[in-house]
Simulated assay, not measured.
Amino acid sequence: MGDAAENDTLGVLDRMTSILEAFDQDDHGLGISELASRAGLPKSTVSRLVTTLVRQRYLERDGRRIHLGLRVFELGQLAAGPRDLRAASLPALADLRTATRHTVHLAIRDGRELVCIAVLRSSAAESTAVRAGGRLPIPCTALGKAVLANSTVREIDEILSVKLDPCTTRSITDPTVLRRQLDDIRGGRPALSLEEFRAGVSCMARAVFGPAGAVVGAISLSGSADGFDADRFDPALRLAALRVASRLSQGASGAV
């Protein structure tokens, strides 16, 4: 393949990726104009590429609305790291939800964000839970703080060295304050987000560690800020994180 043809192929892949990444968790289908605006591409280009992506099942049409297709979901399930962590975690997550009657999330880091890979909702969680596959900011969430506190100094500096955008009026945007919180988390306290991500919702989290001792994700409990009792639920949360780490270690050693 010549350089010109290769560059053209890469350009098409970049444009297709821009279209797929234009969707977010709150979308209920997008029109061509909205897709083009979000992807930063001409409508004619988006219309042509959408036709190809629909044919390949990466997108689906519902009248004039476009949705992510089944093939995207299928490929997502093949990602070994998230799949294995989720499988190892589900029994502990289910017991944690039963014990606390709060919504449980499991998330992993992806650059400057988290990706939620499992959600077990409480009966009253419709407006508080993030869907599986949804992305979360690191500094405003308990999950993010739990992961970041157990990351390297360089990774912490990368996150806190740029302007921190608030999610609510209670979000902490002062890096010095956040660094003190990270120190407390490393000292054994749970990570907390008290209405910092969503007004009226509080959350607590603990990191999950892999067989090599590195942080691989975090588990959280979330619920209404009114009466949220972190001290009461922390033992159950801590136990859940330890159970997941144990199962990951057993998997790494070949135990069934």
Score class of each variant (00 low, 15 high):
residue 90 L to T: 13
residue 92 A to K: 00
residue 66 I to H: 03
residue 90 L to V: 14
residue 66 I to D: 05
residue 90 L to R: 13
residue 86 R to Q: 06
residue 70 L to N: 10
residue 83 R to L: 11
residue 84 D to G: 03
residue 92 A to M: 13
residue 62 D to L: 10
residue 67 H to N: 14
residue 78 L to V: 02
residue 51 T to Y: 07
residue 73 F to Y: 11
residue 85 L to S: 09
residue 89 S to V: 10
residue 51 T to Q: 10
residue 83 R to F: 08
residue 56 Q to Y: 03
residue 82 P to F: 00
residue 72 V to L: 15
residue 68 L to G: 05
residue 80 A to V: 14
residue 55 R to M: 14
residue 84 D to F: 08
residue 59 L to W: 06
residue 89 S to K: 07
residue 84 D to L: 14
residue 67 H to T: 08
residue 81 G to I: 03
residue 60 E to H: 11
residue 86 R to E: 11
residue 73 F to D: 13
residue 49 L to N: 01
residue 54 V to Q: 05
residue 58 Y to K: 06
residue 55 R to F: 12
residue 93 L to V: 14
residue 47 S to D: 08
residue 80 A to C: 05
residue 82 P to E: 00
residue 59 L to T: 05
residue 49 L to V: 01
residue 86 R to M: 10
residue 83 R to H: 13
residue 77 Q to V: 02
residue 47 S to K: 14
residue 71 R to H: 04
residue 49 L to Y: 03
residue 89 S to A: 15
residue 61 R to E: 11
residue 75 L to Y: 00
residue 65 R to C: 05
residue 85 L to C: 09
residue 75 L to M: 04
residue 71 R to N: 03
residue 58 Y to G: 04
residue 70 L to A: 15
residue 66 I to G: 07
residue 94 A to S: 15
residue 52 T to M: 08
residue 55 R to P: 15
residue 74 E to Q: 15
residue 81 G to K: 06
residue 78 L to E: 01
residue 68 L to Q: 12
residue 57 R to L: 09
residue 84 D to E: 12
residue 90 L to Y: 11
residue 60 E to G: 01
residue 56 Q to E: 02
residue 70 L to M: 12
residue 60 E to M: 10
residue 79 A to L: 02
residue 91 P to K: 01
residue 58 Y to A: 03
residue 79 A to Q: 06
residue 68 L to E: 07
residue 78 L to A: 06
residue 65 R to W: 11
residue 67 H to S: 08
residue 57 R to A: 09
residue 86 R to W: 04
residue 49 L to Q: 00
residue 53 L to D: 01
residue 48 R to L: 10
residue 51 T to H: 13
residue 90 L to H: 10
residue 67 H to A: 07
residue 56 Q to I: 01
residue 57 R to C: 08
residue 85 L to Y: 03
residue 79 A to V: 04
residue 94 A to V: 11
residue 47 S to M: 15
residue 70 L to E: 15
residue 83 R to P: 09
residue 46 V to N: 00
